[in-house]
Design a protein around this nucleic acid. Sequence first.
DNA 1: CTGAAAGCGCTTACAG
DNA 2: CTGAAAGCGCTTACAG
Lengths: 330, 330
Amino acid sequence: MSSATIYDVAGAAGVSLATVSRVLNNPEKVKEETRQRVLKVIKELGYRPNVIARGLASRKTTTVGVVISDITRASVAQMLGGISDIAQKYKYSIKMFAIPEDSDVLDALQNIVAEQVDGILYLNDELNDKDVDLIKRMFLDNNIPFVFANVVTNDPSVPTVSIDYYKAGYELTKNIIEKGAKDLYFLTTARRYSVNDKKEEGYTKAMKESNLEPKVIRTSGDTSINKPHFETFFADKNVDGAIAVRDSIAVSFMNTALDNGKKVPSELKVAGFQNTKYAVLARPQLTSIDIPVYDIGAVSMRLLTKLMNNQEVENIRVILPHYIMERQTT
Amino acid sequence: MSSATIYDVAGAAGVSLATVSRVLNNPEKVKEETRQRVLKVIKELGYRPNVIARGLASRKTTTVGVVISDITRASVAQMLGGISDIAQKYKYSIKMFAIPEDSDVLDALQNIVAEQVDGILYLNDELNDKDVDLIKRMFLDNNIPFVFANVVTNDPSVPTVSIDYYKAGYELTKNIIEKGAKDLYFLTTARRYSVNDKKEEGYTKAMKESNLEPKVIRTSGDTSINKPHFETFFADKNVDGAIAVRDSIAVSFMNTALDNGKKVPSELKVAGFQNTKYAVLARPQLTSIDIPVYDIGAVSMRLLTKLMNNQEVENIRVILPHYIMERQTT
DNA sequence: CTGAAAGCGCTTACAG
DNA sequence: CTGAAAGCGCTTACAG
């Protein structure tokens, strides 16, 4: 039942444990013949090195910590998919850490550091620049490589993979203005954080360029709370367009509009961000900014492997391309 | 920068490292006064035990492996949420293992075992009884506790947490028949596996009880492939009802029906399984079997902790309650 | 209640 | 190219 150890292999192959270790880690240093003999025994015994012992001896765990603040976000699963695929390729394991809502983030991160991960991936959290700075310092103090995935910050020293949210917000707004919207609203989350702020800046810029008044509505990310909020909206406001920071908010807004007799897209144009399944399954199908979520995960993980191995990295702030997926709502 | 070790603490507190270890693991064995002194030093130095060294020495890693075959499934994120919350409560870390599509599952599991996890959670995979049996034997051989979450099997010795899919399928079908559907189809995945097979059995039973002919359509789980498939459907078939094994399939079928001029629910009743956000955001809103996905994750993890600690478990096959969330499509 | 010592299963200079 | 030995940072009988 309990699996074979390196001693068992050494004994059966008639070599020292050091040689077995070399066969696994530095095969070129072992004579071909010996190597084959050891490899044969390894296979026969079904030996797999105990990664914990290896981790302690080598001070490398080949494990990365993935920090997730809100696991229910639609993008998390896809991002994890990208991370996982690349991690597998480079033989890294993934330890997942969900940070509970109202906990001390820095303390939670200390614990993650104590887990001896070789690097940390910090996923699309609702962080502002100050938060990022605090977290960055903590990682630096502990000398642990890190990458922020889908978190934006102005600090040029922070490794980041994301899209240009400012530009995306700008382009999407321009696009909808060109299609005729004038009373174009921007629906964002109540809580302010950098990713959504960037989208909003782009929106505001585009509106002003067209001499239109930016109108920002802050609402809950929770679609079930949105509905009553949106209901009151149509009673007292003129509105012929809406851009929401998430597809789910866009769809929920659109559904309320439809229930209130608005025609989409002729009377009201709607668009979202992320291009999730919601956008495709909605009727009419939702126009949305396509964000390469899987790629953000994959590229982040790739960047982290380079950082962990002290490889030369030309650019630690990667911007991935986005595009407007135009559908029936605009 | 590099954090303090147990030696540093012992030195600063004027005790042996054994005592420091006891303060952490068996505090009742240490004199109050000594304990306080050690605790104070621990806090001052910001000492956190190296979990890798602890794992090697104690042969317990307080880490569980979570095996996920298809991370893009809508339910995975929620299930991970439940798992994570309970794991945190019992101080377990989570290592995530995505099993690549066409890989050798048993070999992948061997690797997970080599990671020295204390237990394994196997998430809602598309497994049949034979697969489950193979996997179970592997875990047993390696003497590692495990729980299958949202996987059903007839083997009474396999710890499982899920809902009664047979009953759910039966009840949902009955419900829709009572509302008048006669040509009621069942849309399931091309690949056969136990969870969907159970739903189908329940459907078939209910249809036969009402002297209606069961009609099962196997289609892709991929909604983008479904559409052309469904298009041909309305050309040559009478259909006044459809139950799909997933919400996304149900919505995609309904949308095609709507495009083909069918009225929902008067001419066609539609229902799905899982009660995801898709069901709520769809128009008309979809009737669906509510599956407590978060709870399945949480209860699985709780069960696993008991198994890992050799606690008495009254029932290793937990069935959680489900209900029919009736909405506008039926 | 506390300490000295062995051991967990590996890696890695250091000799040879 | 290979082996003996130290060490990674802990836990845990065993003495006292």
